[in-house]
Amino acid sequence: MVQGRGGAMTAAVLLCLLLSHLELAQAATYTVGGAGGWTFNTVGWTKGKRFKAGDTLVFNYNPSIHNVVAVNKFGYSSCTTPKGAKVFRSGKDRIKLAKGQNFFICNFVGHCQSGMKIAVTAA
């Protein structure tokens, strides 16, 4: 049987779908801060971990005293919230990592300055 151009195209599409499914199946979920959750002095929590784009970070915390803000590099280093930054307030936030650098802080007064921030690089 001779396979035409349409059959090859269908096979290519199916292969792409299969590969994207495998990539999603390999995504990992990390609880920021481990059992202690998202709190002070979590800056070093990322050490020894290898993150990939598509992995999920779970931020568990008391929303009456903390939050999570996705910031840029300047916001991370200066502990400031840039205009338009996404603020999470649920206490059980699930955030998917983008490829490259990802920065998160708590913007409650003094919290970021006291070590409540993380920088994650995803391959």
Rank of each mutant, 00 (worst) to 15 (best):
P63K: 02
T80M: 09
S64Q: 10
Q113M: 11
N41D: 12
F108C: 10
G33V: 04
A12Q: 08
Q113L: 15
G100E: 05
A119V: 02
M116H: 06
C106G: 10
P82H: 02
G54C: 04
T81N: 13
I105T: 09
N60I: 14
G4E: 13
C106F: 10
C16T: 06
H111D: 11
A8F: 06
S77Y: 12
K86E: 10
F40E: 08
Y30D: 00
F88A: 09
L22K: 03
T46S: 13
F40M: 05
Y61K: 06
I95K: 02
N107P: 00
V120T: 03
L15H: 01
R94V: 11
N62T: 05
R5A: 14
G84T: 09
M1D: 15
Y30M: 01
A25Q: 07
V120W: 02
R50M: 14
G4A: 08
Q3G: 05
N102G: 03
V71D: 04
A119G: 04
Y30W: 15
K49V: 07
S114Y: 06
G37A: 01
G36M: 00
S90N: 12
F59A: 05
P63M: 02
G34S: 00
V68A: 11
H111Q: 15
L18D: 02
L24W: 08
C16Y: 00
A35S: 10
N72Q: 02
G75P: 09
V120A: 05
F108N: 15
G91N: 06
Y30A: 00
I95N: 08
G91K: 05
N102P: 01
K83W: 08
V69P: 00
L17V: 06
G4P: 04
M1C: 14
V68S: 10
G34M: 01
N72V: 14
P63R: 01
N72L: 07
K92L: 11
N62L: 03
R89I: 12
G37D: 07
S77Q: 14
M9I: 13
M1W: 05
V120N: 01
W38E: 01
F59L: 08
M1V: 13
G54E: 10
S64H: 08
V68D: 08
R50A: 14
G4C: 06
Y76K: 00
E23H: 06
L57H: 06
C112R: 07
G110S: 13
C16D: 01
A8R: 05
G7N: 11
A85L: 01
M1P: 06
H66K: 02
A12H: 03
T121R: 10
E23N: 04
G7S: 11
R94W: 12
L14R: 02
D93M: 07
T46G: 09
P82R: 01
A27K: 07
G100P: 01
T42E: 07
N62Q: 02
T31A: 09
V58H: 14
Y76F: 15
T42Y: 08
K117W: 11
P82E: 11
K73V: 13
A28P: 00
A85V: 04
K99G: 00
G44H: 09
G6N: 11
S90A: 12
L18V: 06
L22R: 08
